[in-house]
Design a protein around this nucleic acid. Structure first.
Length: 484
RNA sequence: GGUUCGUUGGUCAAGCGGUCAAGACGUCGCCCUCUCACGGCGAAAACACGGGUUCGAUUCCCGUACGAACUGCCA
């Protein structure tokens, strides 16, 4: 058995779609689990859709996620070039296409757009479905030569018989058989001389020794055509592994509209790379045990592709957030702080202990932008309603709060040490003297000092951070409001 | 429309002929607690339907329904 070789073959058309990223991940894992090689190939045969900088996005994303390729445009492994437009320059696609023409498995087609438009077509769900009528398949060799000599534009189409069936084998889905009559004579070489994805893919996978073709299940229905190509060339077909689709909450193919369809979207929304990779690994695959948190190395070790599921999976943003929260909680503090700092500084300009604030918030957020809403009150006391002083469980209301605040104010004014511990001790003493529950005094103070229903720390922690002056001022403000 | 694939709780999923049908997210409840969160405990919640095969089907086969993908000189 030869070494497992897989490939990730994105086209540089923009951001890294999570579906693509998962394909890359699985391709990487399948290869690495088997001790094989993972290759990157750029499929840029569509000049119209090419997006400037998209190749860089691909490199960056793969590096960031740890999906390091063994071969690629930047890492020659002897199977190059690794960019289809460069391979095209070697004439490889045309050569193979002509081989097919000679074998009668493909033919030149000179039909122009106008003639194609006259073909019987049917409109289904807004899309026009036309089937090519094999008009040019019957052209004689002389006619073809003449057309070519006359410089008539042409494409090369695959010649698929109208009888019989074609079968291919998928590792997950088993044998899939279709009637040849259902298969359209797809274009192999476009009129601009470029190969179509369909053709380039087959030629490249074979010539680059790819053993396991791993791709999205949207290619399942065109795979019989690819199979016919392999057969026509007399090539051994690769092991096919078609991956289930990732859908949105409406069970439709994840689209840009969802707002979180690309890796970059997710990063911008404050997700951690590791959490994203971990989460998408679990969309369509599950380990033997019940584990859910995996590092990339652990995935490599445990990834058994036979456990990939066949049914589509909904991208659950809520669960991703949970997982991101798990990663945040597990982060060591310095790494966390480095990432949290910019978000903290977005809302806090005062000279406060930002590290302490970060520590308070670490177990309370799922994505970094959540930080903002938790800590904005440190910067300035928000407008709040005195109704907030009423809390059933704490047995407090506006009157008791006013009483507590008024009584505690001089104590706090006299207090020198504004450390959390000292403040807590002071307040506990008051609680004891008064013979009430802790919350009875903590609640009004916390409320006065934050103006918020919930805060990332208790009353004393907040005061420590805010400092004496600000704490007192806020409590006075509370008293003032409650006195009205 | 045609073709192909799929169908276990709201979601991710385990299960691969005999289980009181795991687990996780989410939801709800309780506990912890200077609020919230974290953490702990617990609850509700599923085999699409109909036929077979079998002593026995969530598991195998066939239909039906539903869903999705494909049906481009896009990949």
């Amino acid at each position: 058995m030869s070494k497992v070789r897989t490939r990730f073959a994105p086209s540089p058309t923009g951001r890294m779609h999570v579906g693509n990223l998962r394909s890359a991940l699985y391709e990487f894992l399948i290869a690495k689990h088997a001790g094989g090689e993972f290759m990157l190939r750029i499929e840029d045969t569509d000049q119209e859709r090419y997006v400037e900088g998209a190749v860089e996005i691909i490199y960056r994303t793969m590096e960031k996620t740890g999906l390091i390729h063994d071969e690629g445009p930047d890492k020659d492994g002897g199977f190059g070039p690794y960019v289809q437009s460069e391979r095209m320059a070697t004439g490889i696609y045309m050569k193979y296409a002509q081989e097919l023409v000679e074998k009668g498995e493909a033919y030149y087609c000179f039909c122009d757009k106008e003639r194609l438009a006259t073909l019987k077509s049917e409109v289904v769900e807004g899309k026009e479905i036309t089937v090519y009528d094999k008009h040019c398949a019957s052209l004689s060799k002389e006619e073809v030569e003449a057309n070519l000599a006359a410089g008539k534009p042409f494409v090369i189409r695959q010649n698929i018989p109208n009888e019989g069936t074609t079968t291919f084998h998928d590792e997950l889905y088993g044998d899939i058989t279709v009637e040849n009559a259902e298969l359209d004579d797809m274009i192999l070489i476009k009129s601009d001389g470029y190969p179509t994805y369909n053709f380039a893919n087959v030629v490249d996978d074979h010539t680059m020794n790819i053993t396991h073709v791993v791709r999205g299940n949207e290619y399942l229905s065109s795979s019989p055509k690819y199979q016919r190509l392999y057969d026509a060339f007399g090539w051994e077909s690769p092991t096919y592994i078609h991956l289930p689709l990732i859908t949105d909450e409406n069970h439709k193919k994840l689209s840009k509209r969802s707002g979180h369809s690309s890796f970059e979207d997710l990063i911008e929304q404050g997700f951690l790379t590791e959490a994203i990779v971990n989460y998408i690994a679990l969309l369509g695959w599950s380990p033997e045990d019940n584990r859910e948190i995996f590092t990339l190395d652990e995935l490599i070790r445990d990834f058994d592709y036979t456990r990939i599921s066949k049914s589509p999976a909904v991208f659950d943003y809520v669960k991703l957030k949970w997982m991101n929260g798990e990663y945040i909680k597990a982060m060591d503090f310095d790494a966390f702080y480095e990432m949290a700092e910019p978000y903290i500084k977005e809302v806090i300009s005062k000279d406060l202990d930002l590290k302490k604030i970060a520590a308070m918030v670490k177990t309370r957020i799922e994505v970094f932008p959540d930080i903002k809403e938790h800590i904005d009150f440190f910067e300035s006391l928000p407008e709040y309603d005195t109704a907030m002083y009423t809390h059933k469980k704490m047995k407090t209301n506006e009157e008791t709060s006013l009483e507590v605040l008024t009584e505690i104010l001089p104590v706090l004014e006299a207090q020198e040490d504004y450390s959390n511990d000292a403040l807590y001790a002071t307040l506990c003493k008051y609680v004891e003297e008064k013979g009430v529950k802790n919350g009875y005094v903590m609640w009004p103070i916390r409320t006065a000092v934050s103006g918020k229903q919930m805060t990332p720390g208790g009353a004393t922690e907040l005061m420590e951070l805010l400092g004496k002056e600000e704490s007192i001022a806020r409590i006075k403000k509370g008293i003032e409001m409650l006195s009205k």
